[in-house]
Design a protein around this nucleic acid. Structure first.
Lengths: 208, 208
DNA sequence: CGGGCGATTGATTGCCTTCAAACGTGGTGG
DNA sequence: CCACCACGTTTGAAGGCAATCAATCGCCCG
């Protein structure tokens, strides 16, 4: 099925829709970067590994987000489906050609990259300077802002994913959630369903 | 004095040379991003702060590096001179105009931003998944690769700077240095002067 | 020579990890 | 349809690594 992939308001490309199952690899580090993807449904994680196999998740990507945009010929990170997801893919060559011919499109690519850079810096900030519950609170607030269903947040990812994103263990993430529930900042009807009870409390936790 | 600022091989702009003393602010977060800078001599740190004042250094910038390149109208981080430094500054407007008229220049800006993004991701990896001595070893190796004087490295920055870059305290950084010296991976003739005795040992430390 | 700041080293604390066990839930096969 | 199994999550107990607190050292500058 042909679908549209939106790079920026008004800038669209035709692409093929493709389905990826839970934990299926979308592309790997050092693979050729032949396609660029847009998340249509589900959620995607991007990540890198240390030499000895430890995983660092660099970002979660929700519907509307662009994944796999690279400058070089190979991917500098890998991507997997967090849950069953549908992605729309466009050939790199198509994008490159369009960018070479249109200043507007080139500009959109730059804007996208710069936005991603800003996120990566904020992530570094969290990893370098915040304690466990601060990290989790920041994570929840960030996710909620990108979700339509605020203040109800459905987590597409496991505690392990969250841990690998925040530089924490599963257990510490779980404990932080429990603490936040005890403090009435959130409610946890189920482990994947968070209700933001007091955004203020979370904002406070985030900074503390 | 008029000087050249090189964005990429063959892409140069004329700019004014300016001197900044140790710890002097070059620009601040949320300030208007009127200029882009190239480090001519010395060293620069870029950083962000948490709401309660904790500092995270996002990068160190050595001669040849570009600092303060932004897409929006304001800086998203602040920059200070680590040591007395000379910077060449070019007006944003000049760069923007050139980029709008030349695909090559626009492409160079994108390349630069993408390279910075890659570094930020690697940084996140270090902060999220590595222990103290691994972080310090990674830092040293990274710095040495960017220094001309390999295997002798002159650190322009204090232990506090290194700590705020690596998400560690001064004491932990100091202890890591001492450990590495005890293991004969480095020598420390003075606190700011590191001699890489065994690059292999450092590479091992970095991954362990 | 004295002062001050940065670095080192030591002792102790505390937070997060690790190890371990139990719980819950969703999915599958009987 | 229900029982069971597997996996993800939660919770508890113990250990370890880096932070904190504190004192000394060394060096650059005045």
């Amino acid at each position: 099925a042909q679908e549209m992939i939106t790079l920026a308001p008004g800038i669209e490309f035709r692409g093929a829709r493709m389905r990826f199952e839970r934990n299926e690899e979308i592309f790997g580090e050092d693979e050729g970067a032949e396609y660029v993807y847009r998340v249509a449904s589900g959620a995607v994680r991007t990540m890198r590994f240390t030499a000895d196999g430890r995983r660092q998740i660099l970002g979660f990507h929700l519907p509307g987000d662009i994944v796999g945009l690279e400058l070089g010929q190979v991917h500098t990170l890998s991507a997997e489906a967090v849950a069953s997801s549908e992605l729309v893919m466009v050939r790199r060559s198509v994008l490159d050609k369009a960018a070479a011919e249109s200043t507007t499109i080139a500009r959109a690519l730059l804007t996208l990259t710069a936005k991603t850079l800003d996120q990566a810096r904020e992530h570094a900030m969290v990893l370098g300077r915040k304690g466990a519950s601060e990290r989790v609170a920041t994570f929840l607030l960030g996710l909620a802002d990108r979700m339509p269903s605020n203040p109800d947040v459905d987590l597409p990812m496991s505690r392990a994913d969250i841990g690998d994103y925040l530089g924490l263990t599963i257990e510490t993430v779980s404990r932080s959630f429990s603490d936040m529930e005890r403090q009435r900042a959130i409610a946890l009807p189920s482990s994947r369903h968070v209700v933001m009870r007091s955004r203020m409390a979370l904002v406070q936790l985030q900074a503390a």
